[in-house]
Amino acid sequence: MDDPLQFQNVLIGSAIAGYGLMEFVSRRYQNTVNASSNDHWLDVLVFISVVAVSQPLAIFTTGWVGQQWFAQWQGVLADWPWWGMVALLLLGDDLTQYWWHRLSHSPLLWPLHRAHHSAQYMSVRMTFRNNFFYYLMMPGLWIAGSLIFLGIGPWVYAFYMGAKLTIILGAHCAWRWDEPLYRVKALHPVMWVVERVISTPATHWAHHALTNKDGIGNYTGNFGNMLFFWDVLFGTAHITRKYPEHIGLMDDRIHGQEHWAHQMFFPVLQSRRADSALRPGGVIYDENNPQTSEPAINQALSSAIKSNS
């Protein structure tokens, strides 16, 4: 295979197919993924927009701007060793994505990231689920495009993206690949290292938990995408080797799901729900200072338990 882009797509496609197959073989998909038509539209359309719009636009635009105004810098990194190029990508892409993700849990940017947490299931199908503008504004895409212009080798980038997305897809997968490995005593030291270096289902499922109050959930941390090491380094890591019982957003359990178009295209399209982060002045649910009554929360949890039983 002579085309690095084609090679990258084969790697990513193989990872999606492999994890998807394991979801079905293990019956985790059939037993845990209760997706609505609203979820289908959001999962599929956001994936298409990332592949067809956001990433190509960032790479094309940074390349065009570079050639117009910074042509003298084109290819200056071409003689760097591959490991140096990978280090730059880890800092320029994965580290900045950690901070972008972390900032996206702030009131200002939460509406652009909320869609990712509105899924009440974990699966490879919802890995890319986010607001359309979340990806357009993601610094890592634009920095990666700039690094490619500066000479990061296309094959290095292809291998990097293939490895990164294999890890990220695995962290979202309904089939929890790390779970059986925790049961093997001889692997405990290995898994101690693994779970502090890369994102695993246990650490990333905790980030998607419905609540932090069970001692497992950590939606206010565990922000790492490929490298969980950033969470360890910056003090946002929570490692339990357990998985939250419920996934999703409490306000959706109480009030019902937001329409997929509002989740994907806010602020162009805005919610009509009174209690919503997807409208100006809307309320962002906080379980430490809830805007809803305890009976409503208990009712929502009761519904969640019934739907998963």
Rank of each mutant, 00 (worst) to 15 (best):
H255Y: 15
A171I: 05
Y19G: 09
W41H: 15
R114N: 09
R125V: 13
Q55L: 13
V268T: 09
Q8H: 11
H255I: 00
D94P: 00
C173F: 01
Q72W: 13
Y219T: 10
Y160L: 10
G224I: 06
T292W: 14
F47G: 12
S199H: 05
L150D: 04
M226Y: 12
R196T: 03
W99H: 01
F266S: 04
H207V: 02
Y121W: 11
L88T: 06
V193M: 12
P180Y: 03
G162I: 04
A209F: 02
G162W: 08
L147W: 01
I297Y: 05
G151E: 08
W69T: 08
V283L: 12
S36T: 15
H259W: 10
E258W: 01
A171Q: 07
G140R: 07
M126C: 12
G140M: 02
L90N: 15
S302W: 11
H208Q: 03
Y182M: 06
S276Q: 01
P189Q: 07
D178L: 04
S123P: 01
S199Q: 14
W41R: 15
V10L: 12
F149N: 06
T61H: 06
S276W: 03
F133R: 04
P139C: 04
N38Q: 13
L57I: 06
A186P: 04
V44D: 10
A35D: 13
R273I: 00
N308S: 13
W230Q: 05
H208R: 04
N289Q: 07
P56Y: 06
L141G: 02
A119Y: 04
H255C: 06
